[in-house]
Structure formats: structure tokens, C-alpha cells
Amino acid sequence: MKIFCENTPLTDNDCFVIFSREKSCFDFPLHTHKELELNLVLNGAGASRVIGSHVGTIGDAELVFVNGEIPHAWFTDACCSRCIHEVTLQFSPDLIDDKLLNRNSLTALRQLFEEARRGVLFTEQTAFEVAPALQRIYERGSAGGMQPLLDVLAVLNTLSLSSDRKLLSDLTFAQKKNVSYSQRLETVFTYMNRNFNRQISLRDVAETVNMSEVSFSRFIKKSTGQSFIDTLAEIRLGHVSRMLIDTDMTIAEIAFCCGFNNMANFNRIFKRKKGMPPHQFRTLFVHKKIFV
């Protein structure tokens, strides 16, 4: 299976590109591109979003910030609106170079860029608040000068300071390494990704970075915002999601291959994390023919 690779119209001489359009349906396949993307959808209630391993239904206002290297798309599904308004802003990851991004004043923005590797969903309230600014950027974009760029940076600053956001996809779907992860955390994720299919204890992982179990528990919680158990489960679910999409193995076979030895527990965790049981997740992907 192959995911469509989009070549955006952004050139090396452009700071960003923005589209504003009215449509009656979503007709672009699951795709990737090298740019970061902020996507606003208004009047699209009932449509669905796919970001990496995440599938969800959108409301009256949808605002998602995503690193284009993670597969993403929107689908019409149960949306009955004939006047969907979509504004898409795309810019290169090096619009703000790493040297500037790593300065203390840009800590919040750097964190937002890192989270985009999993897709970031903002509340409907934030979407409605940002919508006028994005429309102004679209209208001013052709005028040239620095103002449109300053407006883009202002929007990104607003979003970076928002606490009303959540991450969408599993850690496994974050294609690139997070540049701000410490070497210790990289070691931890490498170990868990290589051994996700067997039983892994807190002690096993703590030993890979020469930490006590208590210290490691604090470290992983501070680094990921989750406990060790939840982080490991998320990594395993990422591999489960890929296998549900990419293979014809049964759900039980996939669960056991990914380190889940109790089907009732697996189904409960999957539904809690994905919002649907694994068979529905697989059917949804196959039915939409998301991969082309």
C-alpha cells in the first residue's frame, strides 16, 4: 500500500502558502508532504479526520496543526454541508531555523512544532477565534511585504500558548526524531520500539539508561506527560494500527504479536485510546480506500 506524496506549490523563496476555498466535499486522499500545515475547517460537521493512526469526527469548527510527514486527510463521511469552508496554511519547517527556535523565548513554539509530529487538535472555540486571522492572512498574502508573515507568526504564537489542545496520533507514527528529546529518552524509545512485542518491565527500561525505577518513572512522566505503562501501551497501539492497516492478520494475532496477552484488556485499551474497537478501525480504513 502506498500513501500519496503531495508536492505543494511552496518554493524555496516563499515563506508560506495559504488556500481559502468553499467546497461541498473532501476529495483529497490520505497524503504526506514535507511542510508543516495548519488546517481550518468550518461548516464541516460530520466529516472525519485521519491523522496517522487517529480517526475522528469533526464538529462545526476544526483546527489541526500537523507535520506533513505524518499521513493525514479529511473525508466527507456524514457531512451534509454544501458550503464547507477550508483554509490551509503550509510552510517549511525551516521557516524558523533551529538556532532561533531553540532560544528560550520560543520554548512554547518549539514544543508546538514537536507536537505537530503527532497532529495537534485545538478546541472549536480556538478554531473560531483564529479563523478571522487566517482569512486576513489569505486576503493580505498577495500584497507582499512582511505583514502577512508577521500575522502568521502571531497565529502560531497564539496556538503555542493555548492549553486547550490534544495530540492525535500514536508515538509510532511520528516519523522523525524529536530534536529536543534527550539522548536518554531516545534510548528509551528505541528500546521500547524494538521490544514492543515481548513483555517489558519498568526495571528493564530503566536499566537501559542506568536509572532507578523511581527516578525513571518521574523522568518518563515529565518527558511524555504519561506513565511508563501508558507510554508503552501507546507505542504498542501504534504498531497494532499499522498492522491492522497493512496486513491481513487477525486482530487476535496482531494483539499478541504486539505484546498484548489479554484480549479483553487489549480491546478495552484500544477503544479507550482510539474511540472505537479494532475491527471498526480496520473496516474504516479499508472502506475508505485511504491508501492509493
Rank of each mutant, 00 (worst) to 15 (best):
E114A: 12
L101Y: 03
R118H: 07
E124N: 03
I96P: 02
L100T: 15
P132M: 08
L100D: 10
L101E: 02
E124R: 04
V120K: 00
Q111R: 11
D97W: 02
L95E: 00
A108Y: 06
A116H: 01
Q111A: 12
K99R: 15
G119R: 07
A131Y: 14
T126D: 07
A116F: 03
Q135R: 14
L100C: 09
A116W: 01
G145L: 04
E114V: 10
L101V: 04
E139F: 10
P132K: 07
R103H: 12
T123R: 01
P132Q: 05
F122M: 03
E124T: 02
G141R: 11
L101H: 05
R117F: 08
L109H: 08
N102A: 15
P93N: 03
D97S: 01
L134A: 02
A131I: 06
F122T: 06
V130Y: 02
G144K: 02
E124Y: 02
G144N: 04
Q135W: 05
S92T: 05
G144L: 08
I96Y: 01
E139C: 11
L134G: 03
L134R: 06
R118T: 08
T126G: 00
A127I: 00
A131E: 13
R103G: 12
G119H: 04
K99M: 12
P93H: 03
E114S: 14
P93K: 01
D97A: 00
R103I: 14
G141W: 13
A133R: 14
R140G: 06
S142G: 09
D97N: 11
R110A: 15
T123H: 01
P93E: 02
S105K: 11
L95N: 01
G144W: 05
S92H: 13
T107A: 14
R103K: 14
L121E: 08
V130E: 06
L112S: 04
D94H: 10
D98T: 10
Q111G: 14
K99C: 12
N104V: 09
F122V: 01
V120C: 04
Y138N: 14
I96F: 00
Q135H: 13
L95Q: 00
S142N: 13
F113W: 05
M146E: 13
P132N: 04
R117K: 10
L95W: 00
A131T: 04
F113C: 09
F113E: 04
N102E: 15
L100S: 11
R136H: 12
L101R: 06
A127T: 02
R117C: 08
V130N: 05
E129L: 06
F122Q: 00
E114N: 12
L100Q: 10
T126W: 03
L101A: 07
E114L: 09
